[in-house]
Amino acid sequence: MSIVLPLAEPAPRVRSAAHDAQRLGKRLRHQVGRAIADFGMIADGDKVMVCLSGGKDSYTLLDVLLQLQKKAPVSFSITAVNLDQKQPGFPEQVLPDYLRSLGVDFHIIEQDTYSVVSRVVPEGKTMCSLCSRLRRGALYARAAEHGFTRIALGHHLDDMVATFFLNMFFHARLSGMPPKLLSDDGRHVVIRPLAYVREEDIAAYSEAKAFPIIPCNLCGSQENLQRKQVQRMMAQWDRESPGRVEQIARALGDIRPSQLADPTLFDFLGLGHRDAAATADAQRWLAGDPHDRPHAGNDA
């Protein structure tokens, strides 16, 4: 007579990992939902084009949006779009197979931007700028042709903070990567629903979900990028001063023009100006024209 042993209970470590994954998924859904609400990213009837690269960020974006779509207070459609840039060795069946398994509407754009970038950019130079312009053009064209009202990108909180420092350190301007953006030609609304999500959480979620990650062998392999310098700085902050990156992200949403120095955003010229007082011409100030200097009294 055979003895049937009872099923062994899952080890506490396994249960803990599953529980942690559930908590992480709940936190991500809450953060994405809050970002969508705070910035009015998605409205009833929107056609959302989710740009899927095959990396952890865009996989997470698609996964969370599909979950939120089921319980959202508004009705919207989701289409995943990938740009096959014809990089050598690119596993072209990975994304279609994955998306078919989900039953998600999707489209693969085939455009050989890799050859263009490789031909135009000198060896050893960074390719990101040209590559991103070509990629953006292809995705915008697809959105216009098929009437998508929202273009969803997988940029997260770390990307937004890093872009702020990139612009400040290397371009001398205070600007960043907004959660919601109108394209330069006014035809497309770009949204970043992961605006409140940390990259480390995305990495953990991606690992728990076992997404079929496709590594980027074009720009991702270049070590001399300015962005990598900023990322190393932020990683050091996370180690030595936890919470600093989140604090900076909150500061990006609390801008006070009167405390900065941009006269196009705040009327410094008019601040404290007396109606009866004459204002000297700026060019004469710069030249130090003695005629602009006030007279202390009458000449003897």
Rank of each mutant, 00 (worst) to 15 (best):
Phe90Ser: 05
Val116Gln: 13
Gln85Phe: 10
Ala80Lys: 07
Ala80Leu: 10
Val117Arg: 04
Arg100Trp: 02
Val81Thr: 08
Ser75Trp: 08
Gln93Ala: 13
Ile78Glu: 02
Ile108Met: 13
Gly89Leu: 05
Gly89Met: 12
Phe76Gly: 03
Asp112Pro: 10
Leu99Gln: 04
Ser115Cys: 10
Phe106Cys: 04
Val74Gln: 14
Pro73Gln: 10
Lys70Asp: 05
Phe76Tyr: 12
Gln85His: 08
Arg100Ala: 07
Leu99Tyr: 07
Pro88Ile: 06
Leu102Ala: 09
Leu102Trp: 13
Leu83Glu: 02
Lys70Val: 14
Thr79Pro: 12
Thr79Gln: 13
Ile78His: 06
Gln85Gly: 00
Ser118His: 11
Asn82Thr: 15
Pro73Ile: 10
Ile109Pro: 02
Val104His: 09
Phe76Val: 03
Leu95Gly: 01
Asp84Pro: 00
Pro88Met: 09
Ile109Cys: 10
Ser75Ile: 09
Val116His: 08
Leu65Glu: 00
Val74Asn: 12
Leu83Gly: 03
Ile109Glu: 05
Phe90Val: 01
Arg119Met: 07
Leu99Trp: 05
Tyr114Lys: 14
Gln85Trp: 10
Arg100Glu: 09
Ser118Tyr: 10
Ser118Pro: 07
Arg100Gln: 12
Gln93Thr: 13
Arg119Thr: 10
Pro73Ala: 08
Ser115Gly: 11
Lys86Gly: 02
Ser101Lys: 11
Gly103Phe: 06
Val120His: 01
Gly89Pro: 06
Val120Pro: 05
Pro88Asn: 09
Lys86Asn: 11
Pro88Glu: 09
Tyr114Trp: 14
Leu65Lys: 01
Ala72Thr: 03
Tyr98Arg: 08
Leu83Trp: 06
Pro73Tyr: 03
Val120Ile: 15
Asp105Ile: 03
Lys70Trp: 03
Ser115Ile: 14
Ser77Gly: 13
Arg119Gly: 15
Arg100Phe: 01
Asp97Ile: 02
Val74Lys: 14
Ile78Ala: 06
Asn82Trp: 01
Phe90Asp: 09
Gln69Asn: 07
Asp112Glu: 08
Leu95Tyr: 01
Glu110Thr: 14
Phe76Arg: 02
Gln67Asn: 04
Leu68Pro: 01
Pro73Phe: 04
Gly103Glu: 09
Gln111Ser: 13
Arg119Leu: 10
Ala80Ile: 05
Ser101Thr: 07
Leu66Tyr: 04
Thr113Gln: 12
Gly89Trp: 09
Leu68Ile: 12
Thr79Cys: 15
Phe76Leu: 00
